[in-house]
Design a protein around this nucleic acid. Structure first.
Lengths: 109, 109
DNA sequence: TTAATATATCAATATAATTTGATTAAGGAG
DNA sequence: CTCCTTAATCAAATTATATTGATATATTAA
């Protein structure tokens, strides 16, 4: 008796899961705003993003974690500060040239 | 007395809202699967997608509507059948070349 | 006309994501 | 050490999404 293992389906399914996570992270205008702010300002600590975006610290931390877990931003800790910046490579692999403009300095397009 | 209207912020905000809707539609592996099926098979009616994806009709209808409302797929009604297909132009504007492969015939890359 | 099929929608439920305020942990400054 | 700042996490409440099964509408077929 043969047992059929749908290898291709399984791998496609994991592809869908992978992109589901990334699109979920982008599927929120507050997080898109954070991405935009990080794009314009480069590396920033949480306390500097906070007044620009007008969000409480805990809320901001929550959304940063979602973007971080999805690999869309990167984090570097210096002492008690956490510096975040966009993961340009990941965004280029995910989004169109045209759309990447939102995540690049104003002069890029 | 001057009243400051933050025009740029308002328009940026509407940009974020627009993409939020599109990413929300993509932020679900079932819907990514639907996109993939439509990509491979071209235009399809609901009853033909149903057995491939293994979803009840009402559930499938629900997810198709979300993709349709986000402009990621297009619908054409013929009699009592609804034919859906991917909106290639929209996807090209949204996603990277590399990622668009999931939404194009296998031979494309 | 009657029966069958295709699809959309609705209301109720279930599940998941977000917000809030408080707490914790870890540094740095005095 | 003690106080203050930065940032992460937690539990509870709120809000948003998805699922289910039933029903409605429209079209086709007999």
């Amino acid at each position: 008796m043969d047992i059929k293992i749908p290898l291709e389906d399984v791998s496609l399914d994991s592809v869908f899961e992978k992109y589901e996570a990334k699109f979920k992270a982008l599927a929120d205008k507050k997080r898109l705003h954070i991405m935009n702010i990080l794009t314009i300002n480069g590396s920033m600590c949480v306390c500097d993003i906070e007044p620009i975006i007008g969000m409480t610290q805990s809320k901001l931390s929550y959304h940063l974690k979602i973007l971080l877990d999805a690999g869309l931003i990167e984090k570097e800790t210096k002492g008690t500060w956490s510096y975040y910046q966009v993961n340009q490579k990941e965004l280029n692999a995910l989004l169109s040239e045209q759309l990447c403009c939102i995540f690049k300095p104003p002069g890029c397009c």
